[in-house]
Design a protein around this nucleic acid. Structure first.
Lengths: 249, 249
DNA sequence: ACCGATCATTGATCCAGGTCAATGCGGCCT
DNA sequence: AGGCCGCATTGACCTGGATCAATGATCGGT
């Protein structure tokens, strides 16, 4: 069950991206999800020059932490990451999961230092956007600035929804919301909305949703018993999205 | 007790702002907290022209809701506002409180429609920044764009902290954190960090912190019994900020 | 100065989800 | 192929904070 077996063309493209570290923005399959959207091709070529395409990160490897000096924001090219904020007593909150085309580190701009940590959840790679150069560039390419504002704003509205989730939703609603949010994001990237692999652990999910691992585990079991989903380890199939939608509140 | 009795010069300035709707950015006492920071004075004069200075809002009056067509973002000039996100079933989450110099509505940029509602908590006024004109302007004044990004980023990192608060902190830690956050913001605006008036209800506070009103009320009582704070209705004095700081976790 | 509506406080009880404890399961390393 | 070690599941129990229920205080309107 639940393999990523209905592989779309875009999926193959993404696989290609993963193995070709020097693919240019113009040829990148993430184009329509990514920053360059709407840039003229000569501007794009310029942007392309300042982007550093990193080598891969392994599962668990840190992209940055609050100790890392701030120089860049990042766009996920392949794989996935989680970000966390940490208190001095060691407690931490998973503030987000990030998939290809999504931006990481934008909350560092204001203080010019990373306010959170980012870790790879699987073998992953990123495009690095040196912030200073991005700024210089923005001065001559207004459309780039507009894109940046739009990105920041998108994350902002996502965070507001998350605040609602954390403050007002029940455990059941939280997990249903989470699963559908993943589904939508996979779909946007050309993957199946019905079947996907979770790159994060149950612990990460629980933490992100403000729940205990045990609660998440029990909910997975219950959703499965009720025929809403099917799971096998990290693979998930959504069997009744309408019902899940209802459960979101 | 707990009156705003050690009134600073800035407080008087703010009072003046409140009653003079046509004061220019150059003369505005919020200058150092606000958008124009770092703009050249001729740029500033230009920015000044596109800003609409609104007439006042009364307590409870709506600045915008999700039904309002998106045209502008706003900066609080005087008073205070709350923003909320709402689910279809009527539940709502207070996503933030906003004081003079703070921006409201930035989460609308991405979708070009307001994702939340904003209501005045007391007699208040705002500066309205028509987004389209702001964008045109940004094309010629890079520093303005930089400021905008910085603002967005500031809100973003605040939201991440709030996610930690909602997901991981106990009721006690939540309220202590909230009170100190208010204190810092009042201080930034030239008010006393020790004594201030809450413009929001216990219900708004509870909602914002993901608690029940009754819990907040009990905590206020307990903090008072323990000598951490003194309250009289909406007036609060912080008596032991060190202890409060410890309670934040 | 009174009245009704809204907001705040306090007490009693309840329950969703956390915590504790044990067992199961897989993948990875040698 | 065996043995860890970290992750996941399941059950039993507990508790922080929600909910329910009253009463009191405040404020805006007439």
């Amino acid at each position: 069950m639940a393999q990523l077996n209905n592989v779309t063309p875009l999926f193959r493209d993404l696989a290609k991206v993963e193995h070709d570290h020097n693919i240019a923005c113009q040829e990148c399959s993430l184009y329509r999800l990514c920053l360059p959207l709407g840039l003229h091709s000569n501007d794009l070529a310029q942007l392309d020059k300042i982007i550093k395409r990193s080598q891969g990160f392994n599962r668990g490897q840190s992209l940055f932490s609050t100790e890392t000096p701030f120089n860049s924001i990042f766009v996920v090219r392949s794989g996935s990451f989680k970000t966390t904020v940490q208190a001095s007593d060691g407690r931490e909150q998973v503030t987000g999961f990030y998939f290809p085309g999504e931006f990481i580190g934008m909350d560092a701009i204001y203080q010019q230092s990373y306010q959170s940590s980012a870790k790879a959840l699987e073998s992953s790679s990123v495009c690095e956007l040196p912030y200073e150069k991005l700024q210089e560039f923005g001065a001559t390419i207004p459309q780039l600035q507009v894109q940046m504002l739009s990105r920041l704003s998108k994350e902002l509205s996502g965070d507001k929804s998350l605040m609602f989730l954390l403050g007002k939703k029940t455990a059941e609603e939280k997990l249903a919301t989470f699963l559908l949010s993943l589904s939508r994001r996979f779909q946007d990237r050309g993957f199946s909305a019905r079947e996907f692999q979770l790159s994060m652990s149950r612990g990460d999910i629980a933490n992100h949703l403000g729940l205990a691992v045990e609660t998440v585990s029990r909910l997975f079991t219950r959703f499965q018993d009720e025929g809403l989903i099917a799971t096998e380890h990290k693979a998930v199939s959504l069997l009744d999205t309408d019902k899940l939608q209802q459960l979101c509140g």
